[in-house]
Nucleic acid binder design. Sequence first.
DNA 1: CGAGACGTTGACACCGGTTTCCAATTCGGG
DNA 2: CCCGAATTGGAAACCGGTGTCAACGTCTCG
Lengths: 351, 351
Amino acid sequence: MGTVSAGEEAISSKSDGQKPTINDVARLSGVSKKTVSRVINKSPLLNQATREKVEAVIADLGYVPNPQARALALRRNFLIGLIHDNPNAQMVLGVQEGILDTIRKTEFALVVRPVDRHSPTMFDDIRHFIEQQRLYGVMLLPPISENDELARMCRDLGCTVVRMGSARLDDDAHLVASNDRQAVSEAVAWLAELGHRRIGFVAGPEGFRSARERELGFADGMTRAGLATEPELAARGDYRFESGLAAGAQLLSVDRPPTAIFCSNDEMAAGVLHAARARQIDVPDDLSIVGFDDTATAAHIWPPLTTVRWPIAAMAQAAASKLIDPANAASQPSFFLSDLVRRASTVPPRE
Amino acid sequence: MGTVSAGEEAISSKSDGQKPTINDVARLSGVSKKTVSRVINKSPLLNQATREKVEAVIADLGYVPNPQARALALRRNFLIGLIHDNPNAQMVLGVQEGILDTIRKTEFALVVRPVDRHSPTMFDDIRHFIEQQRLYGVMLLPPISENDELARMCRDLGCTVVRMGSARLDDDAHLVASNDRQAVSEAVAWLAELGHRRIGFVAGPEGFRSARERELGFADGMTRAGLATEPELAARGDYRFESGLAAGAQLLSVDRPPTAIFCSNDEMAAGVLHAARARQIDVPDDLSIVGFDDTATAAHIWPPLTTVRWPIAAMAQAAASKLIDPANAASQPSFFLSDLVRRASTVPPRE
DNA sequence: CGAGACGTTGACACCGGTTTCCAATTCGGG
DNA sequence: CCCGAATTGGAAACCGGTGTCAACGTCTCG
């Protein structure tokens, strides 16, 4: 600033191709770095005139604080990780969008990490991911969100962790959950209301909390409707299409086949649908089918599938809020209700 | 640390809850920061014994260099952004996994940003995203990858840009593309080979490069098969299920309806399938249908859809390579061939 | 009118790496 | 045995922000 070449000079930007730094802003507005820092951080103890002067220079220069430098100085960063091993692309993307909605106006960024649940190195991979990127927090999606050991490891690494699941996996501040049990129970109630008495059930894989919850919900629903659950009307799948095909074949080959089948997810429901078709069993007239998740498939197969839709976006937004603002985490809702989407795959039983 | 517990002390890790830094490594291994830095960066001019000693301490401490500090000092960072506005969740997730495959062993991380193509603030959003995070590079997915102005803006912001598309959108170093035109042409050839003569076409939305390429490919295929394209056998959709429903209704209500329909994506193919079903037209016996993309829907609807599958993972991997290693970008493949997945939705026409 | 309180601002060290520059050491050759 | 080149290690500056703490001017009060 020793040069005396009138106002022009002082205002002109650096024009050396580099991004402007806090020093440039300080120099051009005639204040110290610290003051600029105060402006950026909206410090309350700051003269209004000074603030405006600095803000003008910032706008003029198009200055944006360097997040890496900030992260270094603050000894914390603004990266949150999304870790998932999920077969349901739509859900994962829905979650990504929900998180983005919440962090858009903040300085946080979302970094993603698909993992392989069956890989022996999964824990090491995740550890390395968190340590290398110095993640501020991570969000765990089902099914790996059900892994307590994993959640503990992430916390030991200094991350705040929020888990998404279908049951109470953690305390309210670190959890968002859909109430699958209740949702399934309501879906069964709907089938009973239509007049179905023999209702089949395709369970999800053992060891999955969501599968367990849906099983419990099915039992609840049957009990509440005054119906007995018969072992021959229950099959187990692994959430994949092919397993639905097998389960459908199994359930439809018993002496008195069910008039309706609840499937623990849409993919398996599609499989059951194919199995029925292969046996010349008409859906929905001879067999009603209900799925779970409301994937794109559910809406696009024929007949469109009655299914349970859970509020992914709202859950993801709440989860992100808990992640970036742990102080108010507990005040965000933790439990979310799912809707039964009634489509053409469920009708009253024949006769 | 004032305690006098002999040699133990010098070797024991800090145990004050903080992550070890390069200074800790230097102190414990009795060398300077610079030497540790050389070890980390695999500098060749370094005594082997020294290197091993330092590496032992690093392993012992579980030291991981702070990427923010590195980014600051190197004046570049290791974040690559994935920007997309894509209706196809599976594709986006496939791309994410492909990118991850490539960067897993590097220090790069992937940060995602779904955007809204129709938002008036999209450009500003993206600019802000890139500037705020100081992205090293970005990958653009279709359809926004087709926006030259956007690509230019990203480059002006100092990012390397790689675009994924269905045609030559950019030079080889900044592009990965599937050859949709050829793939569609081959799909049409397959229909002709089955004996179809009246083949309908459902185009994608105007203004989409992929839609245009698929149109051209359809024309190519028809010409090559010696078939005339008739205006009444062509309809236009917007890549969504509902538009496929409408297009199907339109194409199937002409005097001499087609015996096969090529749809520019799977969602619209599902729509056409529903339209046929609503008209009691049997698929595949009365109508063969071909889709494009090989989404989950394609495999799970009835009948399973013959469709074009493009190598998303390979493309994403190549794109990521180009992004993180611009020097060798041109040596990575830019064009990828798609496969025709033949399923039950295509059979010879009824006589 | 001087002192203390207050609101505002700046100097300086620091975060954890890399780089520059230079000194120390090792080594080979004359 | 000495000298110069080659190799290695270290001190200090720097990247772009933030925290601490002291100094500054102004205002109020005794």
